[in-house]
Design a binder for these strands. Structure first.
Lengths: 208, 208
DNA sequence: ATGGTTACGCTACGACTCGTAGCGAAAGCC
DNA sequence: GGCTTTCGCTACGAGTCGTAGCGTAACCAT
């Protein structure tokens, strides 16, 4: 989904294969070069298309990288493992696996950095990535409430706030752990995180 | 601290004022241009020094920005407000205030993104920023344990894991909330976050 | 088929930034 | 005063940027 095309009814249609090739080439370049040394000319070369074709579809490097990275997160799913704790551990491990890939690491943080001065880009990130993955939190929460592991929400407004908060805490913690602290997101860490989320600080990381 | 100078005993000494001017100019340029459009030539011009002087002190843009941003977080302190919950709320609000500044937003995320392909830069970030601010968690935790709000740690190894986890969860949540989700870190959100940290998911955001 | 319309590949362009080299002058220690 | 290092300045080749112009290719409507 490069951009919202007004869908012209006539003329030569845009090649869908070119889209896929460009996004794949972008991820490949992210792995080898990182964000700063990635150039659109290089991406065009890898994808086997002309540089001008690239500029016809995306406004610039930032938007291209957002679309290339967003595809990575669409494969996320919430496995039903029978309990809230197990569900959380499962999805966090999958999320961490995606974040371990270099194209996700360098691409995601770079566009977030760029979005601080570009409201349009920020909105693109929000709709393409953030809002899209909140479905995981909603699903996991509803599942836990059906199981009786979580109390029902007092009102819809509080429910929304709860979803937003959980999403920021979980996603933020995993991102910070793997990208900033540069520590492993392994089973030990995930178990500690889940314990903290479920029971709070009082229990401590060793208690379980 | 541009870099570890071997401290030559002879010759003209490096101007300390130039260091400060360069770092301040870097932050100023980050505000106006963001990371990608920031050029070292422009920073040198703003700081009133020659471009060559800049290259003599820092290897490149990444290292310069790390140092410029690291200074911002040194002003963080942990106010003693009498309870663990109040302490957390206080430091989170201060942290968010720093993250609200454009020079911190764009600079921090950009260098984190760059560090994914540069182990040296990653280490520089870890020592200059991350490890330095973990003191807040250690202090807050020790204080709460003295008050009896938190149980003592079973062993030093578990204590370290606990500090790392709390730091990633708190810092990650605040960063994710303000930079990725682009939501406000206000008193309402901080209260919900603190409640989640202390009591876990069971209580919900409305319970307090 | 034929003509209309749009996408495509290709080439070329001026403007800009990069990081480095070389120079003479300035600033501090012996 | 003599030595050493930093400083400001200028200049340089290399590389990237985003755009314009052109002829060709692909699809739709008649």
């Amino acid at each position: 989904m490069p951009r919202s095309t007004p869908a012209p009814r006539t003329g030569r249609p845009r090649s869908a294969a070119a889209d896929a090739a460009i996004l794949a080439a972008t991820r490949e370049a992210l792995v080898e070069l990182g964000w700063s040394r990635l150039t659109l000319g290089d991406v065009a070369l890898r994808a086997g298309v002309a540089k001008t074709t690239l500029y016809r579809r995306w406004p610039g490097k930032n938007e291209l990288v957002v679309d290339a990275v967003a595809e990575l997160f669409d494969e996320l799913e919430l496995p039903d493992r029978g309990s809230l704790a197990a569900d959380i551990e499962g999805v966090v491990l999958r999320f961490a696996a995606i974040l371990a890939r270099p194209e996700a690491r360098s691409g995601l943080m770079a566009v977030v950095a760029e979005s601080t001065l570009d409201a349009t880009l920020r909105e693109r990130i929000r709709t393409s990535i953030v809002e899209r993955q909140k479905r995981l939190v909603r699903e996991g929460k509803a599942r836990a409430q059906r199981r009786g592991e979580l109390p029902p929400d007092p009102d819809p407004e509080a429910a929304d706030r709860s979803v937003d908060l959980i999403f920021d805490v979980v996603a933020g913690a995993v991102v910070h752990r793997s990208l900033v602290s540069a520590g492993p997101v392994d089973e030990v860490w995930v178990r500690d995180l889940t314990a903290l989320l479920l029971a709070g600080l009082g229990s401590g990381p060793a208690g379980r």
